[in-house]
């Protein structure tokens, strides 16, 4: 080798590739850092696109703590953000067990490394499960709404108390149908029955609305409350609401999917599914990595290698997943 390498005058110095590593970190760790950098930029792209759409529709974006207000075993209780806050604590907690595993690895303590890795895996699984539950609630929806020709959402509220939402079930009733719905024993799992794609038809909702003078409509429009300075959804008077429904309503929306969203702008649902889904996929991959190195630790692979650096590298990835969640939490649930 000596004969083929020209003398550059850097021998023995850092950039000469001598004994010392230029950034004082192993190749693997350095590459993990640069992977994390590029992945961070990917998430930035997504969140910045979300910010773009939000600024574009700044006056009609859904209010997040009205959307995510469920808590397990507390049905009907308005618990805005508490569950996601709990999820945040779970993920930060699993970050802590991971960093404890890394620390135990520095002390070559196989028993502690495996224990902390196991706890990290459990934390990760609880988090992914919570996210699935969150998706389920979002997809199922809660109150139901009506969509207009322009794709805007009209929600129902109490005339006297604008903060009190009214669900479709509370005023609409199922009328006669010319199609028999499939039952469980018909042997057909799923087949669309044309116009009946929601629990109620638009006709039934309109009739219920007309015969119930206590409800009115809330639009997507955000207006400034002069007294408090807070942004609130615009509530129409009963007369305006009737006129609006007669003129513009086209269909009934229940829950959220990629094309419509009972909570407001469909884009909100699209970004929610895409960004939390992509993050959830990262958590899931992280759990798989953690399980693999957990078994390697049990088998004594790193003990024989003389270094637990692999735990450290996977740990970096796991902390990054936590780091991204901190931002997703802020931009989807708080801001």
């Amino acid at each position: 080798m000596d004969t083929t390498v020209a003398t550059t005058g850097t021998e023995g110095q850092k950039w000469g590739g001598g004994d010392t590593k230029p950034l004082n970190a192993s190749y693997g760790k350095l590459m993990m850092w640069f992977f994390i950098l590029s992945d961070a930029l990917t998430f930035t792209g997504f969140l910045a696109a979300y910010g773009f759409s939000r600024f574009k529709f700044i006056e009609e974006w859904p209010i997040a703590d009205e959307v995510f207000n469920h808590f397990p075993f507390l049905h009907g209780t308005d618990a805005p953000m508490f569950y996601v806050a709990l999820m945040t604590f779970i993920l930060i907690g699993s970050s802590v067990t991971m960093v404890l595993a890394v620390d135990a690895g520095h002390h070559m303590d196989k028993k502690k490394v495996s224990l902390y890795l196991l706890l990290t895996v459990i934390g990760g699984l609880i988090f992914v499960g919570s996210q699935a539950w969150e998706w389920k609630n979002f997809i199922a929806g809660e109150y139901g709404a009506v969509k207009t020709k322009g794709g805007k959402i009209l929600q129902f509220v109490d005339v006297n108390d604008h903060k009190k939402r009214v669900a479709l079930d509370e005023f609409a009733s199922v009328g006669p149908r010319d199609v028999e719905p499939y039952g469980n024993n018909d042997g057909i799992w799923f087949e669309s029955s044309g116009q009946y794609n929601a629990s109620y038809t638009l006709q039934e909702v309109m009739e219920g609305f007309k015969s119930n003078p206590d409800i009115t409509i809330r639009t997507q429009q955000l207006v400034l409350n002069e007294e408090t300075g807070a942004s609130e959804k615009l509530v129409l008077s009963r007369a305006d609401a009737l006129a609006k429904l007669n003129k513009d309503a086209v269909s009934v929306v229940e829950g959220a999917n990629l094309t419509e969203n009972e909570y407001g702008a469909p884009l909100f649902a699209d970004f929610f599914f895409f960004i939390t889904g992509f993050h959830g996929f990262h958590v899931f991959s992280g759990v798989i990595f953690n399980i693999i190195i957990f078994f390697n630790v049990l088998l004594g692979t790193y003990e024989r290698r003389g270094s637990y650096e692999m735990v450290e590298k996977v740990g970096l990835y796991w902390h990054f997943v936590d780091l991204v969640w901190v931002f997703v939490f802020t931009f989807f649930y708080l801001v």
Binding site: L37, A40, L41, T44, G45, A48, A49, G51, F52, S53, R54, F55, K56, F57, I58, E59
Partner: peptide, 20 residues
């Protein structure tokens, strides 16, 4: 990261506000 993130966010948010 900090440089590229600030750059991307500034551009996109200004553009979003313009379209609004």
């Amino acid at each position: 990261a900090v440089f590229l993130i600030i750059y991307l966010i500034a551009i996109l948010l200004v553009e979003g506000d313009y379209i609004y």
